[in-house]
Amino acid sequence: MKIIIIDTSCGNFYSLKSTIKKLGFNAQISNNKNLILNADKIFLPGVGSARSIIKKLKKDNLIKFIQNCKIDILGICLGMQILGKYSEENEGISTLGIMDYSVNLMHNTYMPIPHMGWNKVNNIIKSPLFNNINNNSYFYFSHSYNICMNNYTIATTTYEKIFSSVIQKKNFFGVQFHPERSGINGIQLIKNFLKM
């Protein structure tokens, strides 16, 4: 199986690669279009700024390629957020527009932002991503921006307010948490994605 982790210059690439290796697969970190085109599975990880990840994808000529991708692709954290059409981060930026949602700064009254640490994920729509994972299992989060519930939401998390923690449209999947840092549940989710 050919597995590509898109080199966005801002992600936990090696932690993700190491988790995939534990499952008996080798992943390549690359921004080479030909390699990505021949992949069986693609990961789009991201940490930090939406502006910097979009700038990097533009520089590597990967925007249209990702938008038209027919291969299963999993966006992680910021990689999930940029699958939407807009992020209000840093005075606002247009993102990939694959799904019709915006990314907004979390507005909490009582809970600190960023949302960091373990929290429950409640699957509201059955998905092969959650095979052999109990509902309301814990995953590791680290983010200040989130996505409200929308037509693509397949799981939610509550951190004072409810938000989308997993989304899907056709072959595009996104998780707000970091599966590569989420212990046994995260490993199982990555395994499920690879075996779909």
Rank of each mutant, 00 (worst) to 15 (best):
Y152S: 01
H115D: 01
I124M: 09
A50F: 00
I93Q: 03
S102Y: 09
I4E: 12
I36K: 12
S165H: 00
I133L: 09
I162F: 00
I125A: 02
L83Q: 10
S18P: 03
I5Y: 14
I42T: 13
E89K: 03
M111W: 11
S87E: 04
I53H: 01
C69H: 10
L23A: 08
N90D: 15
F173S: 12
L37K: 15
S52T: 14
F163K: 00
I76W: 03
G117I: 13
K161L: 07
Y138I: 00
N136T: 04
N61P: 12
H107I: 03
R51E: 02
Y159L: 06
E89T: 03
I71F: 09
N150D: 05
S94R: 10
K58T: 12
I184S: 15
S87M: 06
N104M: 05
A155L: 07
V121N: 00
G48E: 07
A39N: 09
N34S: 15
I154F: 06
K58E: 14
S52K: 15
Y14W: 12
K161H: 14
N171S: 10
L16D: 02
V47D: 06
S144H: 03
I73W: 02
N123R: 13
N104E: 07
C69R: 13
P179Y: 12
T157C: 00
I190V: 11
S164H: 01
Y101Q: 01
M149V: 01
Q168Y: 00
I4H: 10
N131V: 15
P114D: 07
Y159V: 06
G174K: 04
M111D: 06
S137P: 05
F177P: 05
T156C: 02
I42F: 09
N122M: 01
F193K: 08
S142G: 09
N150R: 08
G48F: 14
N123C: 08
L35W: 10
K55E: 08
I4V: 15
G186T: 09
T19S: 14
K41G: 05
F177A: 05
D7K: 15
K126A: 03
G79W: 03
K41R: 15
L78I: 15
I71N: 11
L57T: 11
K191H: 15
L83R: 13
